[in-house]
Amino acid sequence: RKEMTAACTPRRRIINLTSVLSLQEEINEQGHEVLREMLHNHSFVGCVNPQWALAQHQTKLYLLNTTKLSEELFYQILIYDFANFGVLRLSEPAPLFDLAMLALDSPESGWTEEDGPKEGLAEYIVEFLKKKAEMLADYFSLEIDEEGNLIGLPLLIDNYVPPLEGLPIFILRLATEVNWDEEKECFESLSKECAMFYSIRKQYISEESTLSGQQSEVPGSIPNSWKWTVEHIVYKALRSHILPPKHFTEDGNILQLANLPDLYKVFERC
């Protein structure tokens, strides 16, 4: 597991931080080997919608929660590849102030007048994250320049770009939802926020969305749709870069829909 690298990086740093090793061990302890084997050997059937997909393993048909699986995938990559990410360069710098204002204007932020003026909160978020810029760049390849612009994001899987519609809320939550006081809790909560931002979430995906850094293989055609990215990038990574937690067998994120021999018997009677 320590050699797990989802995106190509030129050289690998050895990380011996106790906090990170502890988080890696927790993933191992909570892992479910049968689910790992199923995901490793599954045959992708198709997307139901951005949140759900169908896959077959041996004779069984499964309904998989793409949102939760991708979130767990990105969390584990962030923990196992800690401080070893490439950088996704933004085509132009994104001012943190503008991103924070967009987030505060969104109902998702939960902002009320009692929280104070949005401009003041946005300025605080910019200054707060600028103070964390060195650590964010060093460990997470999340790059913020001296003017308070976001200029780079971590490359977690080759050819995958997170849904940038979720970027404003991500920046807001970096400042408000991460435990910045304790090292282990900081790395864990920061990785979880980043994983949620990178995950496939239906509120940020339309039929026209593209999450891939590449064009489709047909010359002159439109960019790959999110469905292509889910199948050929995300579920491909799920084959080798995730140890599913045991609770996925109990919380409805992986559901067995049918045993195909039983279905064949039904059709034979028709």
Rank of each mutant, 00 (worst) to 15 (best):
K2W: 14
K2S: 14
K2N: 12
K2M: 12
M4H: 06
T5Q: 05
T5Y: 05
T5G: 05
A6C: 11
A6V: 07
A6L: 05
C8N: 15
T9E: 10
T9V: 14
T9P: 04
P10E: 14
P10L: 07
R13G: 06
I14A: 11
I14C: 12
I14P: 09
L17Y: 10
T18H: 12
S19N: 05
S19H: 05
S19Y: 03
V20M: 06
V20L: 07
L21C: 09
L21H: 08
L23R: 02
Q24S: 05
E25T: 13
E26A: 13
E26Q: 11
E26T: 09
I27Y: 02
N28K: 12
E29V: 07
E29Y: 10
Q30C: 11
Q30H: 08
Q30F: 11
Q30E: 08
E33I: 05
V34H: 15
V34N: 13
L35C: 08
L35D: 04
L35W: 06
R36N: 07
E37K: 11
M38S: 02
L39V: 05
L39K: 00
L39I: 08
H40W: 06
N41I: 04
N41G: 15
S43I: 10
F44N: 02
V45T: 04
C47K: 00
N49Q: 05
N49V: 05
Q51G: 06
W52N: 02
A53G: 06
A53S: 09
L54D: 00
H57P: 01
H57K: 03
H57I: 09
Q58E: 14
Q58W: 04
T59M: 14
K60A: 11
Y62P: 01
Y62E: 00
L64A: 04
T66I: 01
L69S: 02
L69W: 05
L69H: 01
E71H: 11
E71W: 05
E71I: 03
E71R: 05
Y75K: 09
Y75I: 02
Q76P: 01
Q76Y: 00
I77Y: 02
I79L: 12
Y80M: 14
F82D: 02
A83W: 04
A83H: 04
N84W: 02
N84K: 03
F85Q: 04
F85K: 01
G86C: 12
G86A: 05
G86Q: 12
L88P: 00
L88S: 11
L88T: 15
E92H: 08
E92F: 08
P93D: 04
A94Q: 14
A94C: 08
A94K: 14
L96C: 09
F97E: 08
D98T: 08
A100E: 01
A100L: 10
A103Q: 02
A103H: 04
A103S: 09
L104C: 07
S106N: 13
S106E: 13
S106F: 11
G110Y: 12
W111Y: 12
W111I: 07
T112F: 07
T112R: 09
E113I: 08
E113H: 11
E114R: 09
D115P: 06
D115T: 09
D115M: 07
D115I: 08
D115R: 14
G116N: 06
K118L: 05
E119C: 09
G120S: 10
G120P: 07
L121F: 09
L121W: 11
A122G: 08
A122C: 11
A122K: 00
E123V: 12
Y124E: 09
Y124R: 13
I125L: 08
V126P: 03
V126N: 13
V126D: 07
F128I: 14
F128C: 11
F128D: 06
L129C: 04
L129R: 01
L129M: 12
K131P: 10
K131H: 07
K132F: 03
E134D: 14
E134R: 06
M135C: 05
M135Q: 04
M135A: 04
S141M: 08
S141C: 07
L142G: 01
E143C: 05
D145C: 08
D145A: 04
E146G: 12
E147I: 14
G148D: 12
G148M: 13
N149Y: 07
N149I: 12
L150R: 00
I151P: 01
I151Y: 13
L153A: 01
L153C: 04
L155Y: 07
L155R: 15
L156Q: 00
I157H: 02
N159W: 05
Y160R: 00
V161R: 11
P163S: 10
L164A: 07
L164V: 08
L164G: 04
E165C: 09
G166K: 02
L167V: 05
L167R: 00
L167C: 03
P168S: 09
F170G: 01
L172Q: 07
L174P: 02
L174K: 01
A175V: 14
T176M: 10
E177M: 07
E177R: 06
V178E: 02
V178Q: 00
V178K: 00
N179R: 10
N179M: 11
D181W: 15
E182D: 11
E182H: 09
E183M: 03
K184R: 14
C186Y: 02
C186D: 01
E188V: 11
E188A: 11
E188Y: 13
S189D: 13
S189V: 05
L190I: 12
L190W: 04
L190T: 05
E193A: 07
C194D: 00
C194S: 05
F197D: 00
S199T: 03
S199I: 03
R201C: 01
R201F: 01
Q203D: 15
Q203M: 11
Q203F: 08
Y204D: 03
I205S: 05
T210R: 08
T210K: 08
T210Q: 07
L211D: 11
G213P: 06
Q215S: 13
Q215K: 11
S216L: 10
E217P: 08
V218M: 13
V218F: 15
V218S: 15
G220W: 08
S221K: 13
S221E: 15
S221D: 15
I222N: 14
P223T: 15
P223Q: 13
S225A: 12
S225H: 13
K227H: 04
W228G: 07
T229Y: 03
T229G: 08
V230T: 12
V230E: 00
E231R: 05
E231M: 01
H232I: 01
I233S: 08
I233C: 14
V234G: 00
V234R: 00
Y235D: 01
K236Y: 06
A237R: 05
R239N: 01
R239L: 01
S240Y: 09
S240M: 13
S240I: 12
H241M: 04
I242P: 01
I242W: 05
L243Y: 13
P244C: 03
H247E: 12
H247F: 06
F248I: 05
F248D: 01
F248T: 03
T249Q: 15
E250H: 09
N253S: 12
N253Q: 15
N253M: 13
N253D: 13
I254P: 01
I254Q: 01
L255Y: 05
N259C: 10
L260Q: 10
D262G: 10
D262N: 08
Y264S: 15
K265A: 11
V266P: 15
F267M: 15
F267W: 10
E268L: 04
E268Y: 05
E268C: 05
E268R: 07
C270F: 13
